[in-house]
Amino acid sequence: MSAPETMPWWIALPVAAFLLLGSTLTLLGALGLVRLKSFYDRLHAPALGTSWGAAAILIASLLSWSWLQDRVFIHELVIGICVMVTTPVTMMLLGRAALHRDRQDAPPPARETAQD
């Protein structure tokens, strides 16, 4: 078990900072998902978690694992690329689906008013 105790301060400090940044951004994104009023606004909320939220936590993990295992740990990179490439596909499909469904339901196309 674990080893974060042996970490020197100059690596623990950036790891802690990236962890705080990443988890706060993800939490704010989820908060926006609940708070915002219209669907198209909410579509922007998870982008906080998938862009810098995920990136910061992955950087923190990369730093700490590379220190602990004495080799560059690359799993984070694969996960990061996977998230980065797959999010646009989901968002694009969801946006198109929402527009399609709104056009089907209501004759005037969705503008920035709430379409709940």
């Binding site: 579509l43 982008a47 999010t87 646009p88 198109r96 527009l99």
Partner: peptide
């Protein structure tokens, strides 16, 4: 371009029409 637009919070790619080349963003 879709990757860039999706990675930047605040813009979402909604639709692209390959005939006219018009991109719809939110």
């Amino acid at each position: 371009l879709a990757l860039v637009v999706a990675a930047i919070p605040g813009t979402v790619w909604i639709d692209y029409d390959p005939g006219t080349g018009v991109l719809l963003l939110h």
